[in-house]
Structures are given as C-alpha cells and as structure tokens.
C-alpha cells in the first residue's frame, strides 16, 4: 500500500472508530423480522392448517362421549390410542405444513432477491452476507420448529379444554381424559421431537436447499432434487447399493431416531423415553451439523460473489 492510501486509511479509520457498531443480535433480529415480512406463509400456513383442523375437530366433538365410553372398555394398554389420535393428527398436520413451508421458503430465500434485483438494495446496507444467510437458515431450522410447537400447543390445549367441557356437560369421565393424555408430558415430548428431529436432524437438508437457492440460476426445486436423485441412481447402477438414498431417506423420514427409544410409538407417546445423551453423542448428529455448516458457508460465499440474475 502506498503512503497516500495509508494516510487515508488512518484518517478514515479515526472516523470509523466513531461509527457505532450495532450489536450482532440486533442485526439478526431485524433480519429475521424482514424474512417474516417477506414470507408471511411462515406463520400464515401453520395458522391456517391449525384453523382448518380445529373446525374439523369441532364438527366431530359430539362423538367424544361415545369414544370415551368405548375406550373405557378397552385393555388399559390400548386405551390411550383412540383418545390421543386427534392430538397426534393435529401435531402431524402442523409438522407437515412446517416442512412444506420450510422447503419452499429455503428454495426461494437466496434466489428471490437475485431474481427481483433487490439484492442491490440489501447489499447497500451495512449487514454482512453471513448475518443474512444465518438469519435465513434460522427460519426453517429454528423458528419453524418453535412456531410449530407454539401453535400445536395452543391448538391441543384448546382441544383438551373443549373436550373437557363437552365431557362435563355429557357426564363423561374428564379425569380419565386428562390421565390418558398426560398433556404436559405430551407437550414436552412434542417440543423435544421438534427441536431434535425437525431442527437438528433435518438441518443439512435445509442447508442444501439454501445453498441451491443461492447458486441455481433458475428452477431451484429441480436443482435441489435432481442431483441427489442422480447420485442415488448412479450408486444403484454402479455398486448395486442404495446407501446414499437410505441416508437421505433417514434424514428426511426417520432422522433423529437416536433422540428417543421405544420404536413403534409416535414421539409424543408418554411412554417414549427421551435419550438426549445418546442423541448428543451420536456421530450422525454432528456430521449432519458439520454438513449444514459447510452448505451455509458456501451459501455465504455465493451471496458475496453473485449479482442478480
């Protein structure tokens, strides 16, 4: 560097020292708010799904006293299943909604701003590519699971309170409903399941989708799906095995199996045992987080280097 630019740097350096550096948490907060402004489906879709399910639940509520009487006659081992069914379906529906929203959000997250050229505007503001990519990654990995929990919790609580009222009026067994369901433990398990499986285990998939979104010139969905499909097919042809496909399927479908025991039950079943220690030491979890980090670092680099389409 020549003398002139060194002097310049010093002079402006003094000024830069006056510049208030905003705390990273504040930048992250506004970045996430920005994402929620742009992609309102993040909360509208789960709320709508919850609303539709709730209507269905209300329409079927008059069956409840009969179901309770029927359940009372069952073997205690199988009493819970019919009673817990609507709660499980509600949770499942909201999880599915969150996954669909998360996938489409991730595919558009870094492509949308290049498509409409607004990336020029965002890049004219003092916020780093790293903060932007992290805020976008935190939506499917962190925010959606927590939001799904919050909405499911409220929906299930409402269902439980209305069911209790109906049983009280019809002279049913309210205590049996609460005992069988064990709502507190069910909610705790739901939260645990959402964080470990829908957050941590699936994170590399979202990392991949964000990477594709930052890279793909167009048709992000195809670019996200076709390469893994090609790898799987190639493996099958060359080696006659399908370990890659199995690995992906495990991440998508049954990932985070290490997080609980008691196979054959839904994760919210109160008899499920949390095996957090086992989950935290299983290499698959950490390999997955490592892969997520690699995809996100690549996405940061892409955002830095790429202009609009």
């Amino acid at each position: 560097m020549n003398t002139e630019s060194r002097t310049l740097r010093e002079t402006w350096g003094e000024r830069a020292a006056e510049t208030i550096t905003l705390p990273a948490i504040r930048l992250m907060y506004w970045s996430i708010r920005r994402e929620l402004w742009e992609s309102r489906s993040i909360y509208i879709a789960p709320l709508s799904a919850a609303g539709v399910f709730f209507l269905g639940f209300l329409l079927s509520i008059f069956h409840l006293p009969a179901e309770m009487r029927q359940a009372a006659g069952l073997d205690p081992m199988h009493q819970r299943e019919p009673i817990a069914m609507p709660y499980n379906i509600a949770a499942g529906l909201l999880m599915l909604t969150a996954i669909v929203v998360g996938v489409f959000y991730s595919l558009d997250a870094l492509q949308g701003e290049r498509r409409d050229r607004s990336i020029f505007f965002w890049k004219s503001l003092p916020i780093s590519d790293r903060t932007v990519v992290l805020s976008k990654a935190s939506i499917p990995i962190l925010l959606l699971p927590l939001l799904t929990f919050g909405i499911t919790f409220l929906l299930q609580l409402l269902m439980l309170l209305i069911s209790s009222a109906v049983l009280l009026i019809s002279g049913g067994d309210v205590a049996m409903l609460w005992t069988l369901l064990s709502f507190g433990r069910m909610s705790l398990l739901l939260l645990y399941h959402l964080v470990t499986v829908h957050g941590v285990s699936v994170a590399p998939i979202y990392g991949w989708l964000l990477f594709v979104s930052g890279w793909a010139p167009r048709a992000a969905f195809l670019w996200a799906v076709l390469p893994p499909l090609a790898i799987g097919t190639l493996e099958k042809i060359v080696f006659g095995t399908s370990s890659f496909a199995a690995m992906i399927a495990d991440r998508v479908g049954g990932g985070g199996r290490e997080a609980w025991t008691t196979p054959g039950t839904v994760p919210m079943d109160p008899t499920t045992h949390i095996t957090l220690g086992h989950f935290l030491i299983s290499p698959g979890v950490w390999i997955g987080l490592g892969v997520t980090a690699i995809f996100l670092i690549a996405a940061v680099r892409l955002r830095r280097n790429q202009g609009p389409m």
Binding site: T19, W37, E38, E113, I119, S124, P126, I127, S128
Partner: peptide, 25 residues
C-alpha cells in the same frame, strides 16, 4: 463491503427496492 456501506449510500437505478416491502417496514 459491510463496513464501507456504513458511510456510503447507494441507489442502483429505480427498480431495486423489494416490491413486497411496505414503506413503514
């Protein structure tokens, strides 16, 4: 870049403001 743009304002032609955003936002 991110330190520099604390001291620089930039208008890159008229069409780069994101179309979905509200003025208040």
């Amino acid at each position: 870049r991110d330190q520099l743009v604390r001291d620089v304002s930039f208008i890159a032609d008229v069409a780069v403001l994101p179309r979905w955003i509200r003025v208040s936002q």
